[in-house]
Amino acid sequence: MNTWLFRPFTYIAGGKALLTGWLIMLFTSVVAYFSKTHFDGAIDAHSSFLTLPYFVYLLETLIAWGSVVICCYTAAVIFARTSFRFIDLAGTTALARTPMLGFALLNFIVPPVTNISDVTPMMLALSLAGLPFLIWTLILLYQAFSVSTNMKGNKAILIFIGSLLVAEALSKVLLHYLFPIMVNIRP
């Protein structure tokens, strides 16, 4: 049970993981659209009061996942001592974002904050309830990186953290430049 929750990539990877991950990401973006959840960064998730077109939510999810794949793949090419497949990394990192669906669902009951006076203890508690989903995602992302590239131990953890920080910066830059285009050009 624990293996399926925290190390599912022992059993599933490659194309099957990629397809499943994409389907869950697609469903997550639909839920995010209705619960107004923004995945505006590689490991970011926020609620908002703004109503934006659906494709913004889909692109945010894709950018968040894509930047993690690009950065982890580059790091693995430099540091991994054995060969690995891109599709394993892409597939497992896509599936690792599954807990974000829980975060998007939770936002149906967490009202967005417009100013500091809106924050109530109840709301704070609900916001903290989203933290396990983020932690779970981080654990799964590390397992995805570790299993796909056969990197273990402290070195793997440090490389993964570094990659994630670069991915976060990359996703922010991409969103910064794409966001004005996304909201101005409606399909």
Binding site: F9, T10, Y11, T82, D88
Partner: peptide, 14 residues
Amino acid sequence: LGLSYPTVRNRLDD
């Protein structure tokens, strides 16, 4: 073995 490809490949690498 009912395992993923990278899991088996990692075992071989080890």
